[in-house]
Design a protein around this nucleic acid. Structure first.
Length: 887
RNA sequence: GGGGUCGUAGCUCAGCUGGGAGAGCGUCUGCUUGACGUGCAGGAGGUCUGCGGUUCGAGCCCGCACGGUCCCACCA
């Protein structure tokens, strides 16, 4: 070998060098090219605030596997990368760092604050993408985008204006979710419900003009400050007479009506509900129906405002305690019950959100969502796994308008302007110079920014140049597959789908491949607060990116969560080492020899067997990958390389490699080894890009093979070759393998020392079977440690006390009489007899069943009959052996 | 309240359109076999959660139950 291969594979150093080579050679880059078929994946843009975690590692590994596979298949494969400005996440982050310096964002002012944000993005925006490179991600970095770059901003403004002009974006006073800590609205999707232990306060309000009271229960007593009615069910006999009467709101001393509304559940609590239209979505609806006043009692920071009278300025929870105390002292607190219920919290900061009424911008959903529903129903877009459709429709069926305005500074500013003179609202792609109504130049832009998902919803086409009709857009859109976690189906997937249909008139991608969450070894979610997160980069450092990648996609199926485990990483690392060593072995043996394509007559049956097997694995793996069954494909490659190639073929071929006398046979073996190795490397490459590339290049260099490519990643994906299909050899080799396993088994169970050689006799009445054993004599002898093998059609001359290995097509006899205990051999054969009896019983029952014979498919019946014959033959042999031994 | 999903060998999980139960790890027994001990050979270990149904035939399809898990939902 010109290049010495180390005894164990060490990824350190190798990975980075190879990655740099790929980048330098522009292998990741894709250009629109009409002569080739495109295959496109847009990367879910990671947040610029982010650090690479296991979720990213899985997500990007899956994408890289698909893109490398398709690239090798000859597609013009584009993997479009980029990052997300992550409006609220980034803003919160920067506010916190400012806080350490004792500065608020208001101190800084909007402009200065945004400068800070861009600085942050400059400093950290590249961190996560450089981490992605360590995984081997083959995305087109020349095309890297950012959700807030100039092009994306134009796309955002364009969409906003279009939707506004169609009446699908509107400004309105509606009940929204307010985060008092982030001081912004958030969408319904951003509200996370948490079960919290709390209380149910039973309170009573005096009924005006009587001595009586109305008692009700509430979980938020402080909202009483905003009560404007009390409601009962119209059918409720207990309260019918009170409908239309008035109650007095204590503390505030507001007179309010008792209204009748179906919304009230007579069964729950006392059947009376206090109505706070300003702070409860249901009450808001009730308020609309009964024309009730909306009283807002909260400031933006969650303190009580001037409508709360003497409680003004007090924090919402302090006010709660104080109000309960005051009601108690007034004798209006009936009782306090323990009560646990779901409380809406902000998914970013976990602050309890307050529902309140504010004027905000909304996207009208009912019309937009229709094509997004149809696209899934008519399979224009396929969800993998399919059952995700139910989750999808669950959301689309209950869709509500999307609140898109945020009281944040870092994000896409809403392209709406107000004339300070006449109040005219202008929505425009660029800032207008004058008011179209009054001509004033005093126009102020809406201070709010857009929900961060508004820009990521456009990602599949904005990254390709939209709103310009670019060549890329024309060529690469719609993209082929989106790979993402099921946890952002509502935030992102659905919004991309309706945006794609609305703006492009077509689906943004043809398939969505969902993956699950990576949990820790105990099955817990990895989280910062638990501190149980495992840094993918540490794993890469220690075991190599290939090992991590392989581990992440093996042993699980689409959409299911999986556990991280170092044992599994180690197993993957060992696999990389295994193929490394197999390659080392092959190169060692090829050293100095010019290996040429053999005459077909020179191929041994065992060569034909592995070539035929290789063919089978090629079609299987390709098929699995087309169906996104990445884990299944990986397992098949693993098994093929480790078991068939290493454990069997290499071992079977060794005697020929060590025998230079038969040069033609040696050449055939080496040629086959190389061919199968290269094919295996190619199949494995999408999963383990680094080792496979390193080995491929070493083989090319060592064998000075000009037909090989400069890199495995641009080489052609293996295809089924009719010339190498040998079903007969596949079958005959399986018989020999079965015999080898049987002999080894017998030797082990009889405690025959491994070094003890013993002759063997193969007996079969099938001439062809004997022939195939003869053809494989060289390795058969080596594998069972027999100095001599003889062949015969019957058992003439076989001693009664020889050990026998009975297979369906042949029996192998080994004279081990001096070594074994006859009674043990009898026991072993009796066990075998019993097993066969069981099989016979099952098989006979099946074939004796008339319904099976009349209803089962022809092939199944034939197969079963074949089995039965084989069992009968085997049990006959076994019984005969037993008879001989018992003598 | 609605829905998803899982329940297969000691552990972690595969199992494609229903047709003789699999892998990795662990465990046990051997092995300095001229690629690899990150290895080689062999073994043990499962009434596929339970019950019922469809079927010639069910780990797989249907129903119910039990247990775990996740999502959605305005019950004060």
């Amino acid at each position: 070998m010109s290049k010495e291969m180390a005894k164990t594979y060490d990824p350190k150093g190798i990975e980075e060098a190879l990655y740099n080579k790929w980048v330098d050679k522009k292998y990741f880059h894709a250009e629109a090219d009409r002569s080739k078929k495109p295959f496109t994946i847009v990367m879910p843009p990671p947040n610029i605030t982010g650090q690479l975690h296991m979720g990213h590692a899985l997500d990007n590994t899956m994408q890289d596997i698909l893109i490398r596979f398709k690239r090798m298949e000859g597609y013009n494969a584009l993997w479009q990368p980029g990052t997300d400005h992550a409006s609220i996440a980034t803003e919160v982050r920067i506010i916190n760092t400012l806080k350490e310096q004792g500065i608020t964002k208001e101190d800084l002012g909007r402009e200065k604050f945004l400068e800070k944000c861009w600085e942050w993005r400059k400093e950290y925006g590249g961190r996560i993408t450089s981490q992605l490179r360590k995984l081997g991600s083959s995305c087109d970095w020349d095309r890297e985008r950012f959700t807030m770059d100039e092009g994306c901003n134009r796309a955002v403004n364009e969409v906003f204006v279009r939707l506004y002009e169609k009446g699908l974006i509107y400004k309105g006073h509606k009940m929204i979710n307010w985060c008092p800590v982030c001081k912004t609205t958030i969408s319904d999707a951003e509200v996370e419900y948490q079960n919290q232990a709390s209380h149910l306060w039973h309170i009573k309000y005096p009924i005006i003009g009587t001595e009586d009271y109305l008692t009700f229960a509430t979980t938020r007593p402080e909202t009483m400050l905003g009560d404007t009615a009390v409601a009962v069910n119209p059918e409720d006999e207990r309260y019918k007479h009170l409908i239309g009467k008035k109650v007095l709101l204590p503390i505030i001393n507001r007179e309010m009506p008792v209204v009748a509304d179906d919304y009230v559940d007579m069964e729950f609590g006392t059947g009376v509900v206090k109505i706070t239209p300003g702070h409860d979505p249901n009450d808001f609806e009730v308020g609309l129906r009964h024309d009730l006043e909306i009283v807002n009692i909260l400031n933006d920071d969650g303190t009580i405002n001037e409508n709360g009278g003497k409680y003004a300025g007090m924090d919402r929870y302090a006010a709660r305690d104080a109000i309960v105390g005051e009601l108690d002292s007034m004798g209006l607190l009936v009782k306090i019950e323990d009560y646990s219920h779901d409380v809406g919290t902000h998914d970013r900061c976990h602050t309890t959100v307050e529902p309140l009424v504010k004027e905000q911008w909304f996207v009208k959903m009912d019309e937009l969502i229709r094509p997004a529903v149809n696209g899934i129903k008519n399979k224009e877009i396929r969800l993998v796994p399919e059952n995700m459709e139910k989750t999808y429709f669950n959301w689309t069926d209950n869709i509500r308008d999307w609140c898109i305005s945020r009281q944040l500074w870092w994000g896409h500013r809403i392209p709406a302007y107000t004339c300070s003179k006449c109040g005219k609202l202008i929505v425009s792609r660029t800032k207008p110079d004058t008011c179209p109504d009054c001509g004033s130049t005093e126009l102020s832009q809406d201070p709010d920014t857009l929900d961060t998902w508004f820009s990521s919803a456009l990602w599949p086409f904005s990254t390709l140049g939209w709103p310009d009709q670019t060549e890329e857009l024309e060529y690469f859109y719609p993209t082929d597959v989106l790979v993402t976690g099921y946890d952002i189906i509502f935030f992102w997937v659905i919004r991309m789908i309706f945006s794609g249909y609305e703006q492009m008139g077509r689906e943004p991608f043809k398939t969505v491949l969902f993956h699950g969450l990576i949990r820790d070894e105990k099955g817990r979610k990895m989280s910062k607060s638990l501190g149980n997160g495992i840094d993918p980069l540490e794993v890469v450092e220690k075991y190599g990116a290939d090992a991590l990648r392989f581990m992440l996609v093996t042993g699980n199926s689409p959409g299911n969560d999986m556990r991280f485990s170092y044992d599994k990483v180690e197993a993957a690392r060992n696999f990389a080492n295994k193929i490394w060593n197999a390659s080392r072995f092959i190169l060692l043996n090829m050293d100095g020899k010019s290996v040429t394509r053999p005459e077909s007559a020179d191929l041994a049956p065992v060569d034909r067997w592995i070539l035929s097997k290789t063919n089978r694995i090629i079609s299987d793996v390709t098929d699995n990958m087309e169906k996104y069954e990445l884990g299944v494909a990986a397992a098949k490659i693993y098994d093929f390389i480790w078991t068939e190639l290493c454990d069997w073929y290499i071992e079977m071929v060794k005697p020929r490699l060590y025998n230079s006398d038969d040069a033609a046979s040696q050449n055939a073996a080496l040629w086959t080894l190389k061919k199968v190795l290269i094919t295996s490397l190619k199949l494995l490459h999408p999963y383990m890009p680094f080792v496979t590339e390193e080995i491929y290049c070493t083989v090319k260099e060592d064998t000075a093979d000009t037909e090989m490519d400069d890199s495995i990643m641009i080489s052609a994906w293996p295809v089924f070759e009719k010339d190498y299909e040998f079903p007969a050899d596949e079958k005959s080799l399986e018989i020999i393998k079965e015999a080898v396993k049987g002999v080894r088994n017998v030797r082990a169970s009889m405690n025959v020392p491994p070094k003890k050689a013993a002759e063997a006799t193969v007996v079969s009445d099938d001439e062809a079977v004997l022939e195939s054993f003869k053809a494989g004599e060289l390795y058969f002898k080596a594998l069972i440690n027999a100095p001599q093998v003889s062949y015969q059609k019957d058992k003439a001359g076989i001693p009664d006390d020889a050990v026998s290995v009975v297979t369906g097509s042949a029996t192998v006899y080994i004279p081990l009489a001096e070594l074994i205990d006859i009674s043990e051999e009898i026991a072993r054969l009796e066990k075998e007899e019993k097993r066969l009896e069981g099989e016979l019983k099952r098989s006979n029952a099946m074939l004796g069943n008339e319904k099976f014979l009349s209803k089962a498919p022809e092939s199944k019946i034939a197969e079963e009959k074949e089995k039965l014959a084989s069992y009968e033959k085997m049990i006959g042999e076994v019984r005969e052996r037993l008879k001989g031994l018992r003598k």
